[in-house]
Nucleic acid binder design. Structure first.
Lengths: 359, 359
DNA sequence: GCTGTTTTTGAAAACGATTTCATAAAAGAT
DNA sequence: ATCTTTTATGAAATCGTTTTCAAAAACAGC
């Protein structure tokens, strides 16, 4: 009944003194039509195809819209037109220097095209992903952005069944059946690990994300192993320490590695965050970087330049990835262009945190 | 016609072999009803009030829902029930170590309660705010989160007219007419500036965000001035350098300040990012911190601990703010509890980047 | 001024859920 | 077994837009 009251009030207002409209609720398109003395259809046309409404009436309607503060509900639009002008994205988290900047870029590009981005997070828990997909589908998203190439069958199934255009970002694999806009994590990790090997390190610790359910972490590990193999270094699984996301976790993993009887001379981290934690912990332990231990990051975040020493890392094309992702989706939705995969390249950035091991 | 085809296919499937359902589009509640041999009303009840449906039929319906991969469209729900289960938030940006973590926390708390957060950004441009508000209102948000206390008249008006519950975060001011959950920026800035003054600095540079249209920046500047006043230091406007958001901008501002004939002995930054940039630039210029120049940050981000020296900053209660914000909104929406303002406190964290000036 | 064409317009039917209301079925009381 | 009460169910109205379709108005050409 609260609602019917609101509607009644707004109707009264429409008929009465428009100047006095304030703090009054929701006007519908019918209210606007009545206020302007036209039909609802005409109001709708003013909103969507103004060129097919006579100037004189259009102006009158626009005025009415203004006076009543009318905002058309997307829910009703969605229902009738089948498009929600919303793109969904499922990311491990919103924060983190990495995801944030990508989301920001995607969002602002979609915004410019009149689309809205709705972001949901998994907190790195693969099991909640199908739920998120369902929530987004329920919202009628016109397309979906996922992080990484590996997703549960349930996720894939839901997306396929509902025929939602889909783009995977942040990964690129030869044989993926999906549209993917990203880079090869394996290759990127190999780049930085190769650099460390070529400096002469033989005992190399690795701090990575948990590989289960995270293909990026998995691929990074493979890349590091590729490099070790190529350098003829035997893989010692005990030197591979998985860590949860964050600086503290990186620090803890570093401490773990340096509690060994013979600690590594270099630490390869598959995230800058881990490396920051490692750097901090190294300093706390009185270890000099890179003299006592070399440390590398992954992603070349903004903060890689502000540490002492600055962090050797591998630059991943996040801005470009975001831009191409938005562009691909918009091209498909607006122009009907086929979506296609894009493989972006990564670049090793050598800074002060790596050096040859001291004999 | 594409749509009617899809509907036809899904109907056929519903009648035929359900096992074969794959890559087929959207089932409606009617399809489910037909498939289960019940009415749409019953399906709706299974979804919303399952306890009022006989077990035997409920199971049949649940099975049908599963087999058809039915997901109810929120658009239709919104239309009928008036609630969208969506909360809107308008932030300057999604990335940035600060906003990201707050958004993440708000989002995950709302998620737990079945609400979705839709974030829109302004890029620090006040002029686009009304547009964002309009977009969110169009989406039928049940509540809105804004950053800061100062907003355009148009923004306030739209929100009021549409009767959207509103919470301002990230600021707290004595006389605000709105619900605000945050801290006093002025006070926080005063805390850190007072610390610098009490160390004996007399010539203090300030790097802050642009104060126009940004009440947080404005309040921070006032706080710094409060401290200088209290210490009996004359305000020198030329030492107040506004900067755009980011590390680079902080570095540039620092450089500007140190190109003066008599550079300051301490730099107060109203954002950790500025301070990181300043630290980097100081190192590049061969200046020692804190011996040659003291530098302070604002917000105590995670990275304040990993710089060398670690950054003196003022900790702002971001997690708590996010948590209370979500809690307040949920309490109002779900339980009807009146929303009320919360003033959170800040804490000065002294680390290695500040010291007394060397004579 | 009349006819034929084009442009504008409004009435009404969707879109896909929820919800009311009346009826049917089950349970309980005697 | 019958009557009352309670619980389950389905038909139909509804939410606020868009869109189709047919009618009305404007415009042209003669």
């Amino acid at each position: 009944m609260c609602e019917s009251f609101a509607r009644r009030v707004s109707a009264e207002v429409a008929d009465a003194d428009a100047k006095a409209v304030r703090l009054v609720s929701v006007a519908t398109i019918e209210d606007v039509a009545r206020h302007a003395g036209v039909s609802a259809a005409t109001v709708s046309r003013v909103l969507n195809t103004p060129e097919r409404v006579r100037t004189e009436r259009r102006v009158r309607v626009e005025q009415a819209i203004d006076e009543l503060g009318f905002v058309p509900l997307t829910a009703a639009q969605r229902l009738k037109s089948g498009r929600s002008m919303t793109i969904g994205a499922i990311f491990p988290r919103i924060d983190s220097i990495l995801f944030g900047s990508v989301l920001n870029e995607i969002q602002s590009r979609l915004d410019d095209a009149g689309f809205t981005l709705t972001v949901m997070t998994t907190g790195y828990d693969m099991d909640v992903e199908p739920t998120r997909v369902r929530q987004l589908i329920a919202r009628g998203i016109d397309a979906l952005v996922l992080v990484g190439g590996l997703h549960s069958e349930q996720t894939d199934d839901l997306i396929a069944r509902h025929d939602v255009p889909r783009v995977n970002v942040w990964a690129w694999q030869e044989d993926s059946p999906h549209v993917q806009i990203g880079f090869c994590n394996r290759n990127a990790a190999r780049q930085v690990a190769t650099h460390v090997c070529s400096l002469g390190h033989r005992k190399i610790g690795v701090i990575s994300g948990h590989p289960d359910g995270n293909d990026r972490a998995k691929m990074c590990l493979l890349g590091v192993k590729d490099a070790l193999d190529a350098a003829g270094i035997a893989i010692d699984p005990s030197l591979f320490v998985p860590a949860g996301f964050g600086i503290e976790e990186g620090a803890a993993a570093f401490l773990d590695l340096f509690n060994r009887s013979v600690p590594p001379t270099a630490i390869v981290c598959t995230s800058d965050l881990f490396a920051f934690g490692a750097l901090r912990e190294a300093r706390r332990l009185g270890l000099r970087v890179p003299e006592d231990v070399s440390i590398t990051g992954f992603d070349d975040s903004d903060f890689a330049q502000i540490t002492v020493p600055a962090l050797t890392s591998v630059r991943t094309p996040r801005q470009m990835m975001a831009a191409r992702c938005a562009q691909t989706i918009l091209g498909y939705l607006n122009e009907g262009h086929k979506m296609s995969s894009v493989r972006l390249s990564t670049e090793l950035i050598v800074r002060g945190s790596t050096a040859a091991p001291t004999a």
